[in-house]
Design a protein around this nucleic acid. Sequence first.
DNA 1: TTAGAATGTTGTCAGTGTCAACATTAACCG
DNA 2: CGGTTAATGTTGACACTGACAACATTCTAA
Lengths: 192, 192
Amino acid sequence: MTYHHGDLREALIEKTLEMIQHHETHLIGFRELARRLDVSRTAPYRHFENVECLLAVVVEEGFQKFVDALKPVVKNGAFSDKARFMEIGVAYINFALEHPAHYQLMFDQRFSQKGAFKEVEILTKEAFELLRQTVAACLGAGASKKESYDIAHLAWASVHGISKLIIDGQWNYMRDRQKFIRHSCERLLTLI
Amino acid sequence: MTYHHGDLREALIEKTLEMIQHHETHLIGFRELARRLDVSRTAPYRHFENVECLLAVVVEEGFQKFVDALKPVVKNGAFSDKARFMEIGVAYINFALEHPAHYQLMFDQRFSQKGAFKEVEILTKEAFELLRQTVAACLGAGASKKESYDIAHLAWASVHGISKLIIDGQWNYMRDRQKFIRHSCERLLTLI
DNA sequence: TTAGAATGTTGTCAGTGTCAACATTAACCG
DNA sequence: CGGTTAATGTTGACACTGACAACATTCTAA
């Protein structure tokens, strides 16, 4: 047994992700993580100032995965612009539903407030740009940039709202969730 | 100085609301509340099983206020059906922005999961019905009930998404928020 | 008036985050 | 190679939280 762990920093991030996937977000904490990694309670402090800083890194990784999930759809040449817009919506919501706890964390107030966590901010913008450019393509050359921004923001809000309401259990009574999602994303095309 | 407080239960709810309004949600807890109400640390347990149960009551009051804020718009005969739909959206978002912390709590996962907190569930449905009936009126007699449900759900998601993204600080860079909100609610009319 | 229910208090335990002081190991430099 | 220093891990301590049990006081109703 070594006194030094090897790569505790990475291990902390991994275990945190694991706990998030297992819906144990409420149990995440330095003491619990240390216990699971067989290390002393304050060892994590050598790698992260506090729990929030660790979570911020996990959030960054979430947005990275998020962008990676959306990019194939955005780059897929088989879609028309409008079909692409719709498929981005579907892919967005499905990502959220496949990683609910992670998605929650990614959009937690803590990481978007007061400009701390700059990396997170940059990645969010990157994801948004994927949507915005698709909207701009749908609108054609005649439209203003502001209009593409407005519509993209509204579309973002719509898919975010759907994701949130489903994840938070507000629509537990709803059957045929997938049908509703596709249907809604099709409907959102009328916004353009 | 009386040994008994008078109405500690009501006082706990009031103080909790006060703390929410002062953006001190993170400080809410039985010990802190007891301290502020000049009562012993475990006195709150005589009135609420645990903190979550206290919060559930506060959430109920939130939905009550919410419904009260939307009703005047719904009942206002001066609006056409479509204008009413739009104004409900604006009123919805403005309620959320005027009571951000309370709104957050109202839609917290904890109170909509697994059918506990039935009162909350009933009030949510009541608020949704206000929107759904307006949508049904817009659609006219020819449309199916399912269609009004689908569109109302999507519209709900949209205004919820806008509210959440603004409250959570994701759109801090956005100027002319009010203009965007009205503009978006107008755009949502194309969904019908 | 008095027994029992309601309400409030104190003591205790387990859990958390965080800091300071100390121990061990790794890395680098002469 | 050996020794100094930085990186990393540990232990102890403190303040805070939720929660339960045992006890105290007050209110209520027979």
